[in-house]
Design a binder for these strands. Structure first.
Length: 210
DNA sequence: ACATTAAGTGATT
DNA sequence: AATCACTTAATGT
């Protein structure tokens, strides 16, 4: 665990902090599809992703999901940052996109470290900033109803977090993540295929050029 | 061979 | 862009 920690975070944190993380953090491995945080949960741990990826979803009043963004190694959940200031409930759901390895850090420690370590503080602030930017991007594409652009971004992100340009999913699942209908996804994908941007097979989408 | 699930398509709102 | 209705294709039992 310490090797992975050093590899992905070593350049960010000083040795003293890395030791504390190793001592206090709880190492976990979760399988694909595992719900790390659900809406309404109280957040008592802050995740540091070592490998794999997690997708962050918002849910509407009818229980329909909508993808906000992916987080991967070197990222943390921005929601925990706001939530640990007070004991508020999570507004989002976090589901493992792939098998994921992570370290859980209690929120008390994370507050303590904010004062103690400069590198920790800038890490937290910077990832918060990154998430904020992603959120604004998400709002842009949703607000202007550009389904084709949302789909493109989704495919790009998905290929990136999986480090594989062969995406294993169904049109149905994409439609669910993007909160649209399967038919629309099928049509847009078909168009992308005729433009030679992707190759379609059952349960598979091969990215050719995005 | 049959049922089930994924994907493609035209027409309508 | 969403929904409906229907077809075709792939896969499991």
């Amino acid at each position: 665990m310490i090797e992975a920690l050093k590899r992905y975070y070593g350049y960010l944190f000083e040795d003293e902090l890395l030791e504390e993380i190793e001592k206090i953090g709880v190492y976990r491995e979760v399988p694909e599809g595992f719900t790390l945080i659900d809406i309404g949960d109280y957040i008592k741990n802050m995740p540091l992703i070592l490998s794999g990826a997690v997708k962050v979803l918002r849910e509407d009043d009818k229980g329909d999901d909508l993808i906000l963004y992916f987080i991967e190694q070197g990222d943390t959940c921005a929601m925990t940052i706001t939530c640990c200031m007070g004991d508020t409930k999570s507004e989002i759901r976090a589901v493992a996109e792939t098998d994921t390895k992570l370290i859980m850090i209690p929120v008390q420690k994370m507050q303590e470290w904010m004062h103690k370590y400069k590198s920790w503080q800038s890490f937290v602030l910077q990832s918060y900033h990154e998430r904020m930017k992603e959120l604004l991007e998400a709002i842009d594409t949703i607000a202007f109803l550009k389904m084709d652009e949302r789909l493109l971004k989704y495919l790009r992100d998905k290929a990136m977090v999986n480090r594989d340009d062969l995406i294993h999913t169904t049109h149905q699942e994409i439609a669910h993540d993007l909160h649209t209908s399967r038919v629309v996804v099928s049509r847009l994908l078909k168009k992308l295929e005729t433009d030679n941007k992707i190759k379609l097979q059952r349960n598979n989408i091969k990215i050719v050029d995005l």
